[in-house]
Design a protein around this nucleic acid. Structure first.
Lengths: 345, 345
DNA sequence: TTGAAAGCGCTACCAA
DNA sequence: TTGGTAGCGCTTTCAA
């Protein structure tokens, strides 16, 4: 073995007195090599710490074993944690299948596709993982045109003319379950605090509450607002005025805010009349019930889909998978929210 | 241009009637090419959407332009957000310098180094970025032995025999500032809630409080505990009993817990007698003052250091940079914590 | 079962 | 200023 440089197929072959091809076969097609030879080669590989050069391999096979994934801006550290988990799980799944994750940032969806196309042109990635699809998301269409295999975490919303593989979590089922639970513990007037109607995922979550609450034929008490804790508080105040005794929220951030209204007078150990979404650490910390997404499973599935797309690029077997969330019930642990004081407007 | 496959230097050269070398020069060494030729080539490059193959280039230059970065397990979504920001900023800085971030996961520090060494052996990365150095961290030594250039976010704690580049934030200065502030608004008995003494970064933060509080020659009221909100609550209760009127905390999670004790009776708009650390979204949401780390700056610097190490591998110019945090002052916005009820132990 | 040779796309080197 | 050539490390193809 050369002193300075890393071992190569050639150096190993020379050292062992076999051909380059034999060493290569031991790695990629072991059955084709006689056992004795194989073991000798394997020992040498191990001893030398040899790793096949991904550059050499990529050049020859035109496969980079890279997956492009955009790192989205940190929007809300409270609910962003779901994506953290997803990222971790994706990286793990990809790694287990021999793929490497190539991180990049982009200002918007179009820049994201441009960056991905560039990375593909440079042979840096074989495929892409798209996160957080929205209504009329331009990315699937653009990537299809470019010919880059991909899958998305988030279903195609609205009418889409591009068929692709995706994994998503059934938000509607989650909020339905949450609403039904609150009903089951005695609340008839369960309100809903969610995002503006532009958010497709948000409307999905809202629909679950609506379905459950409509069954009771009562008044529908709901709010459309931003995702901040403060906005959750304000919306909750309004809903309470209108007669709501409990609320389901589109996020834990909103739920945290709603607590300041609906947890009034509660005592440690009580079941709070507020249910959040995404089961974040904050929810765990204060004992807030929340709808939990099966993030690990989603990540594993979407990586499977990507690998499938890579191996069958012109495949029309694109498929979608909708996973069911679960309701994580908790009792109030450590904090209480008070009613807004006089100083508030 | 070939119909099916991507353009290459050769295809462009053939199409333009120039040599491969000329096209290559236009990309890598434009001054060496006559203006007229250059413009012609550049136009063709643009029109074809050509991108140099990173595999071909890497094979030839033995540079992958990749940086390995371990994705740590999601520990605490409240404080983990700092790392989110750091990740984002690192990716951005690296991208701006032409480097790609290769994400991977590992079970522990040794597995991390092994993974990095493998990636290096495979030519997938030129360098590594280490995050969250601890006391007696084995990674710098191991990576140095392996010969992989790197820099760390986190200083070398304790005696280290491995010199390397690093960037860190001066936690001591942060908690000193926080403590002084609480003193300045009238608190003489400022307590400290922090982590167990094993945490080097934690002890650094504690030291700042100690320095500020020791100046008052009063009793030193402090706690060593875990990082949960609940633990913050319990510790705060204890410190209050001992006479503390305010606390500085090693994290926003702990501060959130401490609020349930120290914010009793507070009114919206009040300045709370609790200061957290890391300036997370939760702190922003509820109006908790917090020590803020200059994450973007740290990321940019550490990437600079890594690039420096790559370009001067045998360099002994390893250097450390200690950045100063800033105190983010806020007034209570929406939530209050109550004293623990009877049900609590 | 093993080996020889070609060539993936690129850049360094040298010659024209 | 431009072009030709070698070779980075690998896998594929074909021959032995």
């Amino acid at each position: 073995m050369a002193p300075q440089s890393r071992p190569t197929l050639a150096s190993l072959a020379a050292q062992l007195g076999v051909s380059i091809q034999t060493v290569s076969n031991v790695i990629n097609n072991p059955e084709a090599v006689r056992l004795a030879t194989r073991e000798r080669v394997e020992a040498a590989i191990k001893a030398s710490g040899y790793r096949p050069s991904i550059a050499g391999r990529a050049l020859r096979t035109r496969r980079s074993w890279g997956i492009g994934m955009r790192l989205h801006p940190v929007v809300d550290g409270i609910n962003g944690e779901v994506l953290d988990h997803f990222f971790h799980a994706v990286t793990e799944s990809a790694q287990a299948k021999g793929y490497r994750i190539n991180l990049f940032i982009a200002a918007d969806a179009v820049a994201e596709v441009t960056a991905l196309a560039d990375m593909q042109a440079a042979g840096a990635i074989d495929a892409a993982l798209l996160i957080d699809t929205g209504l009329g998301d331009p990315r699937p269409k653009l990537l299809t045109e470019v010919g880059l295999p991909f899958a998305t975490f988030g279903r195609p919303w609205g009418e889409t003319f591009t068929k692709h593989s995706w994994v998503d979590v059934d938000g509607k089922a989650g909020s339905y379950q949450a609403t039904r639970y609150l009903q089951s513990i005695g609340h008839e007037r369960v309100g809903y605090i969610g995002w503006p109607a532009e958010s497709a995922a948000g409307e999905d979550r809202r629909a679950g509450w609506l379905a459950a609450q409509a069954e009771l034929a009562g008044e529908l008490l709901q709010a459309h607002t931003g995702n901040s804790v403060r906005q959750g508080s304000l919306a909750a105040l309004e809903l309470k005025k209108q007669g709501a005794t409990a609320v389901v929220c589109a996020s834990d951030s909103l739920a945290l805010g709603a607590l300041s209204v609906f947890a009034e007078g509660a005592v440690l150990g009580d079941e709070l009349p507020v249910i959040g979404f995404d089961n974040t650490p904050v929810a765990r910390a204060i004992g807030l019930s929340s709808v939990s997404q099966p993030v690990e499973q989603a990540a594993a599935l979407v990586v499977d889909q990507i690998v499938g797309q890579v191996n069958a690029p012109l495949d029309f077997s694109a498929q979608g998978v909708l996973l069911s969330p679960s309701l994580e019930l908790r009792k109030w642990e450590s904090m209480v929210a008070s009613q807004p004081s006089r100083k508030e407007i």
